[in-house]
Write a protein that binds this DNA or RNA. Structure first.
Lengths: 273, 273
DNA sequence: TTGCTCCTCACGTCACGTGAGGTGGC
DNA sequence: TTGCTCCTCACGTCACGTGAGGTGGC
């Protein structure tokens, strides 16, 4: 009893296209049980049909091939399920964001000019505990969360006292290349015993245009747009990091819709205004 | 008062990367108001910030650039909203499918061998009304629906009587290249007055291995897998179109979970068994 | 003047699809 | 033997990202 199928038969049995099957062979995701040395003809086994089906389902969910590989090569059921659940959660989070975005998109399209109050502020150098890294745009939010946990721990074990909210410095490269240096910091009063991975940093003085953003980070573009427009129209732009102050980090018990964020845009000093 | 921004300033104001902005310029989606003839330096206006934000939001929703272009160039609000709503609905349908897929994926991974009953059947040539086209994999379901509507209309206006369920013939190319000829047909008794776009076709005789699939079309892989495996292990494979019979087209009032589909796989004639 | 911003190629990524041109197997 | 299945390049797609190598402007 032969259990071998040609690539065409296997294609019809698995509902995967021949091109896809050849590609999966090329990348070693699903290898034919036999390849003719002379002609290169591929032969698949009926026993491979279930694996092929799993691959097809996962690709239907837009799971990347490398993740698919991880699932079908998972050492145990738990690891396999974890990978699938993780992917599903990513997709659900995506849809949730989509819904939120559609809502604010409507407002944006209605053209209601978002009125944002901008205030000027000169800040002195600020001693701080800081964590610093080169971060990608997509990874930023997660990195920030971990950084502030690290800083909270360092604050606990130091002799210092917090003198301001969780904050961050974003380099120009972070915006322009969607990857660049980010510094998470907590301003402190007094000296501090240091922890590994955390540095003592004096956040430099600066002249800033400041606007308060309310709501989730996905909507930050409104505030950034208002600040950039404001600064440009007054001709007071300056180079330097943008700062954000996360005002309700502890107060707002994880309700991002109510969180307030101060966005601080560098401007030229007061004498030029 | 200058309202012009360099690409870097515009990047920070819109939260779009410089590379993305240059790309949008290249494809004519968002053109700088001014480009220096000598240096090629791009200048954007503060007035372009809202458009850029809309583009950013839509890209966040994974809307293709051509669709984004359609939205921001839409002649009126209705057309614009329609494009956005259409995209949102596509995404929601996608998530719904994802949920369904995850469910059946678990069963697949549990390795419960799906027991499918296969029966042999020899069919005689069948006079039919048919619609024929080259169809892509993704467009197939929608095309089929329209084809059966066309056929129902043709049946009404003809003198013929239906002698079997809505059915379809799928070429091998349709499976192997995910694009190929599909024939939607309704078997009829007696001659028929013809309608434009509909042809009279004798569906050829064939020897078939038949299995009944229950549930949505996304799960068809189980049934195809069972048939392909069955036929291969018995060495009775034959070339030819695969047929599907949609048994409850009218009965199951649009509940795809209960729909029954007969899948018919070509095999060699009875004397070889 | 120096360094920094910006520029234009050219190529890479991801998961295949689309031909072109050719050979093996029933 | 014929046509059909299958093969391997090589290139295209989409929305940018990643350097390389170079110039303009404060």
């Amino acid at each position: 009893v032969s259990t071998l199928l040609t690539i065409g038969e296997f294609s019809r049995t698995t509902l995967l296209s021949i091109k896809a099957l050849r590609h999966y062979h090329d990348v070693g995701l699903l290898e034919p049980v036999q390849v003719d040395a002379g002609s290169g003809y591929r032969s698949y086994a009926t026993a491979q049909v279930p694996v092929a089906h799993v691959i097809r389902r996962l690709r239907d969910l837009d799971m990347p091939l490398e993740d698919v590989r991880a699932v079908i090569q998972a050492p145990d059921v738990a690891a396999r399920d974890a990978a699938i659940v993780a992917h599903l959660e990513r997709m659900e989070a995506q849809l949730e964001r989509t819904h939120a975005t559609v809502q604010s998109l409507r407002e944006l399209l209605e053209g209601a000019a978002p009125s944002v109050d901008v205030e000027f502020r000169s800040v002195a150098p600020t001693p701080s505990l800081a964590v610093r890294a080169t971060v990608s745009w997509e990874g930023a939010e997660e990195w920030l969360g971990q950084a502030f946990e690290t800083l909270a721990g360092a604050l606990d074990s130091s002799a210092a006292e917090r003198s301001g909210p969780d904050s961050a410095l974003y380099s120009e490269a972070f915006f322009e290349a969607h990857a660049g240096e980010v510094v998470a910091f907590v301003p402190i009063a007094g000296g501090a015993r240091m922890t590994a991975g955390v540095e003592s940093l004096a956040i430099p003085a600066a002249d800033l245009a400041v606007a308060v953003h309310r709501g989730p980070f996905d909507d930050l573009d409104k505030t950034y747009g208002a600040l950039g427009t404001f600064v440009t129209e007054r001709g007071i732009g300056a180079t330097g990091d943008v700062r954000e102050h996360y005002l309700d980090a502890e107060a707002s018990d994880g309700d991002p819709a109510e969180a307030r964020t101060e966005v601080c845009w560098p401007v030229r000093g007061g004498d030029s205004r």
